[in-house]
Amino acid sequence: MDAILSSLPTLDTIELAVLDAQGLLCGEEVISETELPAFDHSAVDGYAVRTADVQMARPDDAVQLAVVGEAEPGSHETRGLSAGTAIRIYPGAMLPHGADAIVPMAWTDRGVARVDIRKAPTEGSYIRRAGEDVQPGDTAVTVGTPIGPAQVGLLAAVGRTRVLARPRPRVTVLSIGSELVDVGTKPAPGELVDVNSFALSAAARDAGAAVYRAGAVGADKDRLMSSLESQLLRTDLLVLSGGFASSSFDVVSECLSELGRVDYSRVAMQPGMPQGFGVIGEREVPVLCFPNDPVSALVSFEVFARPAIRYLLGKKRLFRPMTRARATERMDSPAGRKQFRRGLLMRHPDGGYVVSPVGGAGAHLLFSMAQSNCLIVIDEDLTEVTEGADVQVIPLVLGA
Rank of each mutant, 00 (worst) to 15 (best):
D61H: 14
D61I: 00
D61A: 15
A62S: 13
A66N: 09
V67N: 09
V67C: 09
E70M: 03
E72H: 12
H76M: 11
T78K: 13
S82Y: 01
G84V: 10
I87E: 07
R88T: 06
R88C: 11
P91G: 12
G92F: 10
G92M: 12
A93P: 07
L95F: 05
P96S: 11
H97W: 05
D100E: 07
I102S: 08
A106I: 12
W107H: 13
R110L: 12
G111V: 10
G111W: 04
A113W: 04
R114K: 13
D116Q: 14
I117A: 03
I117T: 06
I117V: 14
R118L: 06
R118W: 02
A120Q: 03
S125M: 12
R129S: 08
A130V: 06
E132M: 12
V134H: 02
Q135S: 12
Q135G: 01
D138G: 04
T139D: 01
A140T: 09
T145I: 04
T145E: 15
P146H: 07
G148N: 12
P149A: 14
V152A: 07
V152I: 15
L154R: 13
A157F: 00
V158S: 03
V158E: 01
R162T: 15
R168H: 02
R168Y: 00
V173D: 03
S178C: 02
L180E: 11
V181F: 02
V183S: 13
K186V: 15
A188S: 11
A188C: 01
A188L: 14
L192C: 07
